[in-house]
Amino acid sequence: MSSERPDREDFRRGMTVEIEQSNADNDRALRGEARNVFDDDSPKGAKVKLESGATGWVRRVVSEE
């Protein structure tokens, strides 16, 4: 995986990811487990829906240490 935002192919459902919310007024990242991956092709990267219901673009996959 590159240092840029991950592509849809870089992760799978159930992975813990950090997202930039698509409908948020602030720049705070949210972390959660990916439930759905959307097929839209955006320059912002892959868009997902978390188990919490929040949607946004994946900033990075969180390593599971």
Rank of each mutant, 00 (worst) to 15 (best):
R8C: 04
V58T: 08
S3V: 13
V61P: 04
L50S: 03
D39K: 08
V48N: 00
A54V: 02
W57D: 02
V37N: 01
D7W: 08
E33V: 14
E20V: 09
M1A: 13
K49S: 06
R59T: 09
D7E: 14
G45A: 07
V61A: 06
S2A: 13
S22I: 11
D39W: 07
W57C: 04
D10Y: 05
A54H: 14
K44L: 15
V62P: 02
K47H: 05
N36H: 15
V48T: 02
V17P: 01
R28W: 09
I19F: 02
R31P: 00
A46V: 04
K44A: 13
S63F: 11
A34F: 01
R5E: 05
I19S: 02
A46Y: 03
K44P: 00
D10L: 05
S2C: 10
V17E: 00
E64F: 05
V48L: 01
G32D: 02
L50H: 05
W57H: 14
S63E: 15
A54S: 14
R35G: 00
N36C: 12
D27I: 09
I19E: 02
E4D: 14
Q21N: 07
T55N: 04
P43K: 11
T16V: 06
D40L: 09
T16N: 01
F11D: 00
A29Q: 08
E9F: 12
E65C: 11
D25E: 10
S63Q: 15
F11T: 01
G53M: 02
E51M: 07
G14E: 01
E9I: 12
V62I: 15
M1G: 15
P6T: 07
Q21D: 06
D7T: 11
V62G: 02
L30T: 03
E33Q: 15
E4S: 14
E65K: 12
Q21A: 09
E65L: 13
N23T: 12
R31T: 05
V37H: 01
E4F: 11
K47F: 02
E4T: 12
G53S: 04
R35Q: 07
R31E: 02
P43F: 10
T16W: 00
D10N: 15
